Amino acid sequence: MAGKLTYQQAGVDTRKAAALVGDIGAHVRRTQQTRKLWGAFGLFAACYDLSSYKEPVIVTGCDGVGTKLELLLERGLLETAGKDLVAMSVNDILTTGGDALLFLDYIGIAALDEERITSLIKGMADYLEACDCILAGGETAEMPGIVPTDVIELAGFCIGCAEKGDLIDPTTVAVGDVLVGYASDSIHANGWSLVRRVLKEHPGEISDEELGAWLKPTRLYHDVTRDLKAKGVKPKAMSHITGGGLPENLERLFRGMGADLEIPKWDLPGIEKLLAHVDAEDRFHTFNMGIGWVAIVDEKDVEASLTAGDGGVILGRMVPQEGVRVRVSGE
């Protein structure tokens, strides 16, 4: 009818959005090679059969990519953004000793852009396929006038499950236990507000190659947890080193004791240029400093833990003095 408006004219194309669900089907199917949804993909809610668990305990996680997303969008690194989104939530699930089963995403965008959204989904599917977690669904919201045209909003949600008896129990951590750290692949997805401030105030100091190394996706630590289980090692606690660095992410695990850590020098191209502009103490509370995962284990399990996944190294021990103190080897 003449003069009447459509939803599409207002900036939202529901038919195009429905077609996109079919277009990403190949990526979704890649995440169901082993585990399967109970029912079809694309319904109002996703279902998963937990009957293979004897005493199932559901575990959940939610996270985003933070301000790193600005630099990824500027450089067209949408697949990296998708991988970061998955890793930030899946790794948190893995700290419980559970399995990451289902992942859902939220994408907020000014107008549907099939190429960019497909790149995001591909990155998610690459990581989800690697850790055997299903892309179970999500929400792509077109919000013209709310989300700027050069911005994409991202949030990820992960649902996992563990046998009650397999859950990690941080209350078992004791003085003398050993902290084993595992290398990060990059700065990961925390501390980027500070990185962006340094880049703005010191233009041209960081090369494109160095920045590219910093922007590599957050490492998935499923290889570490998988190998620990295969070796029969049950850590007393595990930590994903994100915002707050080693001190704050470890201190949430125990009370009435602490840890003295000595970490290797961070082996990341150009990172010394960044750290030269950062407060010496604050660096430990902002960046992962080359260690993205920590397992606290009994002395008898140290040797096996060091060969679980790549990059295992002894960082220190639990001590009676409260707080986590960190220093870099050789400094």
Rank of each mutant, 00 (worst) to 15 (best):
E303Y: 05
P148H: 07
R116L: 09
E331R: 12
V151Q: 09
V57G: 02
L215I: 09
A40F: 00
D282T: 12
E331D: 14
R29N: 03
L211F: 08
V178I: 14
T96I: 04
E79R: 15
W293A: 13
K68V: 03
I314E: 14
H202D: 10
R226P: 00
F287W: 06
S329I: 09
N190T: 13
A162G: 06
L154H: 03
V195W: 04
E303K: 14
A130K: 15
A17H: 07
L120F: 13
A111M: 09
A230I: 14
K16P: 00
W293R: 15
A141H: 09
R325T: 13
G232E: 03
D260Q: 11
D150C: 06
V59A: 01
V326I: 11
A10E: 15
A162E: 05
W214P: 07
D126T: 12
H277C: 10
T307I: 10
T31F: 08
Y48F: 15
D150T: 09
V178C: 02
R30G: 02
D126F: 03
E299T: 13
G97W: 01
F287Y: 15
E163D: 10
T140Q: 03
A130V: 06
L246H: 13
F157C: 08
G64M: 06
F254L: 09
V59I: 13
I121K: 05
A125K: 05
F287K: 08
S52I: 04
T140N: 10
F44H: 07
D185P: 00
L135E: 08
C131W: 04
K229G: 00
E79V: 06
M1K: 05
R196V: 01
I314G: 00
K16M: 07
P235L: 06
P170N: 05
E115S: 07
L199D: 13
G232K: 03
V297P: 02
P264S: 07
I206M: 07
D227W: 01
G61P: 00
S305C: 07
T80C: 02
H202G: 04
H222N: 14
L69D: 06
K231P: 02
R317M: 10
A276Q: 05
S239H: 01
C133E: 00
L72I: 06
V28G: 05
M124C: 11
K273F: 06
E210D: 01
L275Y: 15
L20Y: 07
A26M: 02
V319D: 01
